[in-house]
Every structure is written in C-alpha cells, then in structure tokens.
C-alpha cells in the first residue's frame, strides 16, 4: 500500500496571521510557519495503514523553500520520503492552479492512495480533494472520520453535522480526513534523527512539464482584491439583573441564534 500524503505549510493558526499588502497573498516571512494541523491527522492515518499493511508513505508538498520544515515534521513522524515542488513562479497561485501542479507531481509517482487534511487552516477552502479527483479521474472520499482499507477498496465514514455517510470506492482514491479520526503521534527521538537521512526530491515546474505562465498570481482564477483586519473586540452586552437576568440571558442567546 503506497500512500501519498499532501502536506501544506501554513502560518500557525494559533498566532496572528497577516496578508502581504504588496500583493494580497499570505505574508509568510513574518509568520510562524508550521505544518497544516489537519494534515497531521492524514499523516497519522497513512502511517497507521502502512504499519498494518506495509508499503511506503510519501509526503508531497507544493511551497517555498521554507516548506522543508513541514516536510521534516512529516518525515520525523514516520513518513518514508518526500517530494517538494518548489518554484518561484508558483507564488500566489489559486487552488485550481495548485491542483494542476499537485496532479502533475502525482502523475510522476506511484500510489494506491492519496490522503490529505480535510482543509488547510489558512484558506479553509477544502476543495483540493475534489479538484484532484477531477483532474486525475479518481474517486474522492472527503471529510473522513474513519478509514478502512480492505483489499482494493477504501471505506470511510464521512463526517456530517448529524452523523456520517458510509462511503466506499475502489483504489486508487483520494481521502481527506478530519481531526476526529485519530490522535497524531509526536515525533520520537529516533524519528527526528532518521528524518534527516530520508530522501527529499525537489521538483520545479519544468520537471513537471508545466508552463510557468499557467500558474502564479497573474493568471490565478481567484484573487484577493482587498482585505481588512478583524475589527477590535467590542464592549459586549451587559445585562443588569433585576430579577429577570436569566430570561434576558436566554433572550440574548436566542437572539444570536445560539439556542
């Protein structure tokens, strides 16, 4: 069972994130860049499948040089090798363009399964599995909270607000996972040391047979036209309890559609 896990480096969702006013793209230079948290669940699931069934886990990422940190994290968790697509022309690419780059990279790899996080914590589009499924002609099983691989079939429980859908598809397939699926492992000491020796292949757009003009901000299908910081937190609502505090509290919650 050879699995490719898609990994994205994102600004840490736990700290303040900014866009670069020069071109309205994510400001990476000043950010604390980390592996997309949701991807860690996909890596864990891939490693669990590999440990049970054998094979290899390969990490694939598209991103700047600094994305090697995200790759190293995945390798230290136990992935076997990595492919890093890095090319200055990719900067500012939209999801559609990025999916073309990933699809081209996957086209040069052997896999039975592609896995990724259900969303990236930066843009939160959640469209990559669908875009790749369309480009590669593969079934997509998105938003999984449970994955079972039996023979040539993938079965997942697709998480919904009210429960789950039971889905299955023949391999190769694309599966995206939520953070309800497992508890990602921490890299062990030996995992960290071993990661330094694991192979990381770097690919440019030319290596993938892609034209630099087909990606990047200039030809992106979507662009950020404008942005503004989050408004400062307001004063909030103060309710004076005149014996009817509980009622006012419930009314407020109902007004906010919280209850």
């Amino acid at each position: 069972m050879n699995i490719v896990v898609l990994v994205k480096q994102v600004p840490d969702s736990g700290s303040e994130r900014k866009l670069d006013p020069a071109d309205n793209t994510v400001a990476r230079a000043a950010a604390d860049n980390v592996i997309n948290e949701m991807d860690e669940y996909a890596i864990e699931e891939a490693l669990t499948i590999k440990e049970a069934q054998g094979g290899e886990v390969t990490v694939l990422t598209v991103g700047p040089d600094s994305a090697t940190d995200a790759i190293r994290k995945a390798l230290s968790m136990g992935a076997d090798k990595a492919v890093h697509v890095v090319d200055d022309a990719i900067h500012g690419s939209c999801a559609v363009q990025t999916s073309a780059v990933i699809a081209a990279a996957l086209g040069q790899m052997e896999y039975d399964l592609v896995m990724c996080g259900a969303e990236a914590t930066d843009a939160q589009l959640s469209v990559m599995p669908a875009l790749l499924a369309e480009r590669l002609g593969l079934p997509q099983l998105s938003g999984a909270r449970k994955v079972t691989i039996e023979g040539g079939t993938a079965k997942v429980e697709r998480q919904t607000d009210g429960g789950f859908w039971a889905l299955e598809a023949p391999l190769p397939a694309i599966i995206s996972t939520w953070d309800t699926i497992n508890e990602p492992r921490y890299p062990s000491f030996k995992g960290i040391m071993a990661a330094k020796k694991k192979p990381v292949e770097t690919r440019s757009l030319a290596d993938l047979g892609l034209d630099a003009g087909s990606v990047g901000l200039a030809s992106a299908t979507s662009k950020v036209l404008d942005f503004a910081g989050r408004p400062p937190k307001g004063e909030g609502v103060k309710v004076t309890d005149e014996g009817d505090g509980a009622q006012k509290f419930v009314d407020y919650l109902a007004g906010q559609k919280i209850v």
Partner: peptide, 16 residues
C-alpha cells in the same frame, strides 16, 4: 540546526 530539531521535538511532546 540539529540541536534545534531536538529542542522542537522534545518540546512538542513535553508541552502535551
């Protein structure tokens, strides 16, 4: 850089 990796790795576990 390798020491930094060790620091980051053990810090992540200890912080849990």
């Amino acid at each position: 850089t390798d020491l930094d990796d060790l620091r980051a790795g053990v810090r992540e576990l200890a912080s849990s």
